[in-house]
């Protein structure tokens, strides 16, 4: 368990985020690592900045609302879902669009969406995992 998740587990009584960059605050938000030298933003564990090669980063909170700049309705499994890229105030976020019918009539480029979270269930120790998605505003 990562340090961030461990901290959140104790603070939120056995709730952990699906990924490190989902911060289970009130309200929850996504947190990027921003390069202190060139402002490039990342969501994964970094060795250095892919843009300027420096290695110092600061955590930044990402806007909780954005617009869909690209999407696909993936229909290869039993349950179709909407994969999308959302522009949250200039930062691109990859996500699944929730609470929308997965059909071209209901999903549009430029659609306004907001961050949401949902439970993925509990493990054998009673720890609840919380995932994120975006939903239409």
């Amino acid at each position: 368990m990562s340090e961030a998740q461990e901290k959140q587990t104790t603070e939120t009584s056995k709730k952990i985020p699906f990924v490190d960059y989902l911060i289970l605050d009130d309200p929850p938000y996504l947190q990027a690592q921003e390069c202190t030298s060139c402002d490039a933003r990342y969501f994964d564990r970094r060795n250095a900045c892919a843009s300027c090669f420096e290695d110092q980063f600061r955590p930044v909170a990402i806007d909780r609302e954005g617009i869909v700049t690209s999407f696909s309705i993936v229909q290869m499994g039993p349950i179709p879902y909407v994969s999308a890229v959302v522009d949250c105030g200039g930062t691109s976020v990859k996500c699944t669009i929730m609470n929308v019918e997965p059909s071209p009539e209901h999903v549009n480029l430029g659609m306004e969406v907001k961050l949401m979270t949902y439970s993925m269930g509990q493990d054998s120790e009673g720890t609840e995992a919380i995932a994120f998605g975006f939903e239409p505003i």
């Binding site: 699906f18 990924v19 969501f43 879902y81 990859k94 699944t96 993925m120 995932a131 994120f132």
Partner: peptide
Amino acid sequence: VGALSSTEGRIGT
């Protein structure tokens, strides 16, 4: 990203 399971479908594709 410290994911708890596969991100496929959970975080887009």
